[in-house]
Design a protein around this nucleic acid. Structure first.
Lengths: 298, 298
DNA sequence: CTGATTGGTTTGGATAGTGAACCGCTTGGT
DNA sequence: ACCAAGCGGTTCACTATCCAAACCAATCAG
């Protein structure tokens, strides 16, 4: 059971990058069920690639064309995809809207966090996004980019983020369910830049550092020239279920800028926690308040 | 292929009602892939049932418990479900939020229609919902209920609606893709009340009537005492891809009330069509304008 | 015309999913 | 205390299902 799980989870990471292409044989060895294979097809969609054709899917997923085709048609039959009549391309279908609607109507997570993200982005003039823990990766559920500067981070890259290479990931690793850190460290830590933490011990160190600071900082761990800081958002058990992050070009990451930024970030995270029915862990409130004091002094 | 399709589609209808229980053998005969079986589990969630346990799933889906369990865990692994730690119940996961976000960011369907629904509901003081065609059923993607009367329709029943037994369905059948009417008529027309149209010819008649009127009317076809009228929303090819409907107790369906109601409904549908990049078919604009004239006169 | 795309379809052989029975646990009635 | 019924979860032989490679038909470029 534990073995199956970790196998599945490794797969989850693979398509954060287009595909780990090394040896086609090795990728095939990893066990995963039909359902997983089909659902992973959905993960290839993104903002700049809202429509995908059969052949393109086959290349992305490195699977047999016939298999992909059957999976696609079955997804279409269930409304998770719809097919353009003349281009024959596939795009996400109405079922995802319906389901997210059902979920939001009983537990309005995005509905409450989205305004907070917008507000924060507007105040800081930087990219903000909100992600929640899903297995051992992060799923971005909303974002806001009110940055008006010429140099800005164009987010539109990936909606699935690795925990070990994003500031949001750091925050969740530090304050989330205890098992996650170990799970992630047990797996392979894919390298994105030369600053990506690929060593388990080093990652543990970063996590500890983050715990003491109360929020996370990172520069160039996923993409060069991009810095980010993130604060955890807690559930009622005072476990981080997600994080709010601010992402900006490293050149705008001066000491003073960072302080004002984190002040707003922490305030937003506090709000987010409260508004989603969560509670900050005991020690943290003091740490966050101290940070506020410093930033006010500056 | 055509056979497979229609078979799959019939399945789609089955879980509008809990389950067509007749003969367990017969339900098992219907061919459907693993993916479909797994995805259909997601359809059992609704507003009043946001959490479902394993055994309950098994009863609802009439499938083997082990199978259901494996499907559920695989859905959890992919973030489509999440499991409560102590109750062990399942609920919809963050993946649906992420995917709907991806879709909305390139084609903001719900984002644009939701405000219109709210506005209409507020004006009319009745339940409004917006549904889109998905195969041969309707998926409700948003709704609004600003009804303040003591007697009101509590929508929270089903987010998947049959085309032959809802006013929205009538509207889509009348103005949607030509094949849909035939597909639906070819299938079994499940009866909900004594007013449900279960005869194919009768349904064709209703559809024709709806075409001439320009919008649909219904009373008690899915539930007794509930009336509804709906207007189609069109895509750029002037085909209805969905509908906006107003649902109310039959006692509030007097002639005058209906006229003012349809006037607002048609205006909203026109807006919805335009704002989602669609276009009204040639003849319809005149019909809708005429309706407006009548209502103004009243 | 060829050749290289595209989306879609067929085939037998092997893999991956199935379901009856089973397990350990908690619940609740007596 | 007891037993029975319910729960979530697991096992394993069987076989239905899916996979891979090859094949179609249509389109487009040169």
């Amino acid at each position: 059971m534990a073995l199956n799980c970790s196998a599945d989870l490794k797969i989850g990471l693979s398509h954060v990058l287009p595909v780990a292409s090394d040896s086609p044989i090795f990728t095939a060895t990893a066990r995963m069920g039909t359902i997983t294979k089909a659902l992973q097809l959905l993960d290839f969609f993104s903002r700049e690639q809202p429509e995908i054709g059969l052949s393109q899917f086959q290349k992305l997923a490195l699977r047999d064309k016939a298999t992909v085709y059957r999976h696609l048609t079955e997804l279409v039959d269930n409304g998770f995809l719809e097919q353009d009549q003349h281009s024959r391309n596939y795009r996400l279908g109405p079922a995802v809207l319906r389901l997210s609607n059902v979920r939001e109507s009983t537990d309005p997570l995005r509905t409450t966090l989205d305004p907070l993200a917008r507000q924060l982005s507007r105040r800081l003039n930087e990219l903000v996004h909100v992600s929640v823990l899903q297995g051992d990766i992060l799923a971005t559920i909303c974002y806001a980019n009110h940055c008006s500067a010429a140099l800005r981070v164009s987010f539109d890259e990936s909606e699935l983020l690795p925990l070990h290479a994003t500031s949001s990931g750091y925050a969740v690793l530090a304050f989330g369910p205890g098992t996650v850190v170990d799970d992630v460290c047990a797996g392979k830590l894919q390298s994105f830049t030369e600053h990506t933490v690929t060593d388990a011990d080093a990652l543990y160190a970063v996590v500890n550092e983050t715990r003491q600071r109360g929020y996370s900082l990172s520069t160039g761990i996923k993409e060069d020239g991009v810095a980010s800081c993130a604060a955890p958002v807690f559930n009622s058990a005072s476990e981080a279920y997600g994080a709010i992050s601010v992402t900006f070009p490293t050149v705008r990451g001066s000491h003073n800028q960072l302080l004002t930024l984190t002040s707003s970030l922490l305030a937003t995270a506090r709000l987010a926690t409260v508004q989603t029915g969560g509670q900050l862990p005991d020690g943290l409130e003091a740490v966050w308040s101290a940070t506020d004091q410093i930033s006010i002094a500056v």
